[in-house]
Computed example of a mutant assay.
Amino acid sequence: MKILIIEDERTLADSLKLMLTSKGFESEAVYDGESGEEYAMLGIYDLIILDIMLPFRNGYQVAKDIRKKHISVPILMLTARSEIEDKVRGLDSGADYYLTKPFDSRELLATVNALLRRQGTQVNELVFGNTHLDLESAELACDDNSVSLSAREFEVMRLLMVSGKNHISKESLLTKVWGYDSNAVENHVEVYVGFLRKKLSSIGSDIHIEAVRRLGYHLECDG
């Protein structure tokens, strides 16, 4: 299970990460709303712990944008704001539960486990046009046709589907898929985009990957 922590108090964020890791969760922490939203939009997390008072974008905005993208990941708002109006606004923004600071670690863990249980066996997927990307099996499917993706094909396709009609640059794809320290070059991205185009065609998908010079790639839907 992967958990994303979006919390600007670094000491708290890092201690939460350490605690959750010790309980067997794979955890990542980011320290501002803008970065947190970017991570959340990857669609790879099973739960998000989200503070409200964050630099650049507050938690309400982040939660709303996550839900606009139809990402159904459970969101646990963890904040010092305890007024009823704040809680109502948090839940209306898309949060599933609201936990007030200071909190007991046992209460936090119980809430995390409860939210994950509630998620159950719900399919975790991204959809664009008539095409579905299963985030657990790494399969790309259209109607009754499906094709398995390699690890890097999956990462590139996931980022494209999250971005949708918004451009994502080759540099961004290189960094997120191959990593900062990789020797990979932009040609690697072009090769994998070529692989994905063939696989989309093979399953009868109505989406295609558009390349725009200097801007990168985005998805388009036929018709």
Rank of each mutant, 00 (worst) to 15 (best):
M1R: 09
I3P: 03
L4C: 08
L4R: 01
I6Q: 01
D8R: 06
A13C: 05
K17Q: 10
M19S: 10
L20I: 04
E26H: 05
E26R: 02
S27G: 03
D32K: 10
G33F: 05
E38H: 07
A40R: 00
A40C: 09
A40M: 09
D46M: 03
L47P: 02
I48H: 07
I48F: 05
M53I: 06
L54C: 04
R57L: 15
R57W: 07
Q61F: 06
K64W: 04
D65L: 12
K68E: 13
S72Y: 11
I75T: 08
I75P: 04
T79S: 06
S82C: 09
D86H: 14
D86M: 07
K87F: 03
G90I: 08
D92H: 08
G94D: 11
F103E: 14
D104H: 15
D104K: 15
L108N: 11
N113I: 13
N113F: 13
N113D: 14
G120Y: 13
T121Y: 11
G129S: 14
D134Q: 04
D134K: 13
A138W: 11
E139I: 08
L140E: 14
A141Y: 13
A141F: 12
D143K: 15
V147P: 04
L149V: 03
A151V: 05
V156W: 00
K165A: 08
S169F: 03
K170M: 02
K170R: 07
E171F: 04
L174D: 01
L174N: 07
V177A: 01
G179Y: 11
G179H: 04
Y180R: 03
D181Q: 09
D181Y: 06
V185R: 12
H188R: 09
H188S: 12
Y192H: 07
F195S: 02
R213K: 05
R213P: 00
L215V: 01
G216Y: 02
E220S: 11
C221W: 06
D222M: 13
